[in-house]
Write a protein that binds this DNA or RNA. Structure first.
Length: 304
DNA sequence: GAGCAAATAT
DNA sequence: GATATTTGCT
């Protein structure tokens, strides 16, 4: 009853990813220096596009082909910055203009368990009533996350909850092992994060949103957690920077601890990692292998 | 702008 | 093939 609420509420903050765990979307995972160190370069420097630009939807693919790193700039004296590091502009001549770089299609966002958890937390605190994409998005305050991302995810999440209710009801009815009925294939992600009790029992808690009208996440971090993003960024940067040589002596690699993420994340063994595109991290190395797809990773850390 | 279903893309 | 995104509609 009430205890659950207060409990849930107090636990919320605790369960929120700590600044150290948070991985901001707007961080480059690989520094230019690192790229150079690993001798990362463009497999095919073919940027010279045919004069005829096929007015088809292939434009996105052209982007995707853009591997990270600037190949071999005719200007060795110039240190590549994280900015131009994002795209050397090989596709700039084609469909994608360099100007509206941010208006371009955002790379596919990967809903990591951590990100989803944040999502669930936000929804939980808003209450189902107020849990609309826009507010959720604001609450999450994840850089780079769009309203549509949330809307889309919310849509699926609702379906998931619906199913959960269904099976839980059926299970209570008598058909045991109903929980097992939940499609394991459909909700890997959702299952990874605990669903607030009242989500499944709307009737039990008709007004769970009375105590939390709207609280921006940063505000919730009453501590010094304000600049979590920068903090995490710095830390993460260090990790990446020292790749194979932990200076701290006790840091674990911030990357996946879940096998399921591996395919979307990069493999540690590979030098190639990702570039930043004014918003978040992308992975292209696995992309090139499978046809070229851009993937966004938000919370590389696999902590639950 | 939100919600939903279906289509589409990766 | 699984997922995330986009689209069309209400």
């Amino acid at each position: 009853m009430r205890e659950e609420d207060s409990n849930w509420f107090s636990r919320w903050e605790e369960e929120l990813p700590s600044p150290e765990e948070l991985m901001p979307l707007s961080q480059t995972l690989i520094t230019p220096d690192l790229a150079i160190a690993f001798d990362i370069r463009n497999p095919h420097t073919t940027n010279t596009n045919p004069t005829t630009t096929p007015p088809q939807q292939q434009q996105q693919q052209q982007q995707n082909q853009t591997p990270i790193s600037n190949p071999s700039p005719p200007n060795p004296s110039q240190q590549p910055t994280s900015t131009d590091f994002a795209d050397s502009g090989e596709l700039g001549s084609g469909t994608a203009g360099e100007e509206p770089a941010r208006t371009l299609k955002r790379p596919r966002l990967v809903w990591t368990p951590q990100l989803h958890k944040r999502f669930v937390d936000a929804v939980a605190h808003l209450g189902i009533k107020n849990a609309v994409p826009k507010t959720i998005m604001q609450l999450m305050s994840v850089d780079g996350l769009t309203r549509e991302n949330v809307a889309s995810h919310l849509q699926k999440y609702r379906l998931y909850l619906k199913r959960m209710q269904g099976i839980s009801a059926a299970g209570a009815g008598g058909t045991a092992s109903a929980a097992a009925v939940a499609d394991p294939a459909t909700d890997h992600l959702f299952a990874s994060s605990p669903v607030p009790p009242h989500f499944l029992h709307p009737a039990a808690r008709p007004n769970s949103d009375h105590f939390l009208p709207f609280v921006p996440v940063p505000a919730l971090h009453h501590h010094h957690h304000q600049q979590q993003q920068q903090l995490a960024a710095a830390q993460f940067h260090r990790h990446v920077g020292h790749f194979g040589s932990p200076t701290n002596g006790h840091f674990e690699n911030p990357f996946m601890s879940r096998p399921s993420q591996q395919q979307q994340l990069h493999r540690m063994g590979g030098p190639v990692h990702n570039s930043v595109s004014g918003g978040y991290v992308e992975d292209m190395e696995s992309a090139n292998a499978s046809g070229g797809r851009k993937v966004l990773t938000l919370f590389p850390t696999g902590d639950d």
